[in-house]
Design a protein around this nucleic acid. Sequence first.
DNA 1: TTTGCCGGGGA
DNA 2: TCCCCGGCAAA
Length: 508
Amino acid sequence: MASVLSRRLGKRSLLGARVSTPSSLADRMLGTAQIPTLQAELSRVSSHLASYEGGRCKEQGEESSMMPSFPNLNRLQLHPGQRVYVTYNGQECAGLVEQHHQLNDEVQVLLLEQGVHACWKTEDVRLAEMQRSLPPTLPMDQSPATAMDQSPATGSVQRSVSRNIDVPKRKSDAAVEMDEMMAAMVLTSLSCSPVVQSPPSRESSMPASQAACDSWKESGDVSDSGSSTTSGHWSGGSDISTPSPPHPEASPKYSSEALSSPQADDGFETDSDPFLLDEPAPRKRKNSVKVMYKCLWPNCGKVLRSIVGIKRHIKSQHLGDGTDSDQRRREEDFYYTEVQVKEEAVPESATSPTFGSSPIVIQQALAKPEALALEQATLESHLPDSALSQSAPSSFWHIQADHAYQALPSIQIPVSPHIFTSISWAAATSTIPSLSPVRSRSLSFSEHQQPTPMLKSHLIVASPPRAPSGTRKVRGEAKKCRKVYGIEHRDQWCTACRWKKACQRFLD
DNA sequence: TTTGCCGGGGA
DNA sequence: TCCCCGGCAAA
């Protein structure tokens, strides 16, 4: 029952995440908020959103069934020279219609102030005339809005406001909002502190990133992704358009490349976020993946190609070389993260003319609401995770030393620092009490100094691995010797497995 | 039913 | 200390 419930809740929240998206979008649409009683019917919303993801046409079709006026508004024919408003760089800008492609539902607009030509989705373009004329003349238009705002009086007010100020404002499910705010807050706080990272040289990052597809908590390096994403993108420019000031609430989405690129320094190459972006990310693109190293220092976000480079950068820019060099040297490891960059992804969008507000991109991003939920999840889990991985190597060796069972230091083990740490984190979250002493040892490595208070607290939560007695350790997801080698090759099992003890080769 | 492994016990 | 295994709990 509980699981069902949680599942349901999860679903719900997911839906919620979606809800906010289109509703905010809807806010910005021409006809604005034509979605009737959004909140009332989540299921309906979900279907609506599903179709939204699929494409606008569908959405309209569906909408039209319940709100006949919507398509009409949406299909307004814009004439060249017509004055419209669009969101550019997060700001409402006036522009002139250059061309209206009704086929792809796009409007080419010349921004007067910026002198920029760009394309917007029709929905994202507001007619100048309409803006003025709508409030008085379109009661129809207001009703849905009021439905959303739940207050007729404020509804109309906000309606007009939202029409003029195009900041994607989400008003929808309160819970969702809270979720997102939470996520945003966490992210922001994260972004203000150097997020820890595991030694980049560990190549486990690769498998980990792949594993991210399966489950974030299982992959060692997801942590990296998490941290990098969070710190990088959110701090770098969480807002769709404004590159610099992090404005967590402004946008739950990030068009990462776009954002961070303006902020990039010389060394900056790309900033698409590998792991997180990979999965839930709005834009998942070509696969040529490149490993970069991103500075996690607050408000830095510099990305370099080489470890050496990033270390040098951190040392020189943030830590300052000098005294305590030994300590520094170690410290610098904590201030960068390994980032897998999908090439092409960045240039493509970054160079796009619509880069600024890039409505299209946003839509795509929004169309993947899981990203939000996932983000939150990853966030929560990754923080400590990354913190863990940071000290993974040392703890790892502890383990080796500790292990009475571990007769053969198998080849896989050296790879495991990441896996180990991350996984143990997962274990920690789910079954803290059941951690074995060995594991607890690995978790308790709080020798790292700087992680955010937040990280620390997470760590603390995670680390009390006490109470090894009592509950059983939850079975891990990892393959065990038995599975890997089969019962017929029992001699190849790790000693612990042979002795029916907790497997030490495939830690989980 | 299978699998992972705790707890206990024998050598 | 090494090794084995009964038996429990999760999958």
